[in-house]
Simulated assay, not measured.
Amino acid sequence: MKQIFLNTLKITFAAVMAILIARLLKLEFAVSAGIVAILSVQPTKKETLKTAFSRFLAFAVALVISGLLFNFCGFTVPVFFIYLAVFILICQWRGWISSMAMDSVLISHFLSLGKTGPSEILNEVLLFVVGVGFGILVNIFLHKKTDYIEELKNQTDEKIKLVLHRMSLRILNPSFADYDGTCFDSLNQNLFIAKKQAEENFNNQFTSRDTFDTRYLLMRENQTKVLYEMFKCVRHIKTVPGTAQMVADFLEKVSVEYHKDNDVQSLLTELEEIRNKMKTVPLPVHRAEFEDRANLFTLLERLQEFLEIKRDFYLNNIN
């Protein structure tokens, strides 16, 4: 709601300023500059610039078409209808859909003025420039939502830590309540929102093309996929094998040390030591425990993959 209110103020400011500047320049139909400003604001800076460029090309075409038709066929409503048909056809062909209404509003002024002389054309060009200019200016102040994306990233990390923590508890308690994987619904939803925000932040940059947030969230998404495979291993465990305690303790340690600046190298080293210890433990007598120890060993293989994803990301992003 706060963001909606702020965007409303920014867009209104752009429209008002465009109208005031147009009036200051003594332009005819000054209010149209405000309408152009409103129509020029897009969700991101990148989209605003792209739209402004396409509308400039479309406006140039509209000036040529209207100039020829009005001067050769007269300044009448039927001629304006012909202009609309030709211009809309070209806009659809070129993909300038968003330009049809805005540019046609400006061209309609020629019908009211009854001429397309240099001063009339200059008037419309200035209305266009002032309106689009303030539309772009508004988006310059639509900064990256740095605090919000950091909050989303932290929420994602906390949810992953919770999954690891619950996993460590479930290994030591096969009857652990509500171990049904629903926590992944919340985690995946959080990842989806965070990725959308990272994309919006990326498109709200004019020059710096920072992709760190996008790459960070992709890394967490890949880890989540592996984490789900780990969850399936744990869910199939029906007993508490002799090796369960060391695995549970290590999972808890990973959850505690799970943060964005950890290179996980020490965790990988400790994981290898645990796997070697597990190999020295005598084989179980009962089949159920044998199967559960196999699940624990598979779990550790997935855990190694989970940690290696983070290690590789860390190594690739050292400044």
Rank of each mutant, 00 (worst) to 15 (best):
L69W: 04
E257V: 05
R215Y: 02
F290A: 07
L267A: 00
F70D: 01
M1D: 10
V138R: 12
F206K: 06
K196T: 09
A58C: 03
L57V: 08
S98F: 05
M17E: 07
K232I: 14
T51M: 12
A177S: 05
L6D: 14
L20T: 11
A198D: 00
A244F: 09
L299Q: 03
N262E: 05
D213I: 00
R220E: 01
A52C: 01
E47T: 12
R55N: 08
T214I: 09
G131H: 06
Y228T: 03
Y314M: 08
A58P: 03
D103G: 10
I21C: 08
N123S: 06
F110W: 11
F29A: 09
R23C: 13
N316A: 15
L113S: 14
T269N: 13
L20D: 03
L89N: 12
L283A: 08
L57R: 02
T116A: 15
F290G: 12
L172F: 05
I4C: 11
D210Q: 04
V105D: 03
Y228W: 11
F290H: 09
K260G: 11
K145T: 10
A101W: 13
N317K: 00
M246I: 07
K196Y: 04
L300Q: 01
F206H: 05
L68G: 02
L27A: 06
F184E: 00
S186C: 10
L299I: 10
T243K: 09
E221C: 06
K50N: 08
Q189V: 05
T146V: 12
T156D: 06
F141Y: 12
R220C: 01
Q205L: 04
D185F: 09
R293D: 03
V16H: 08
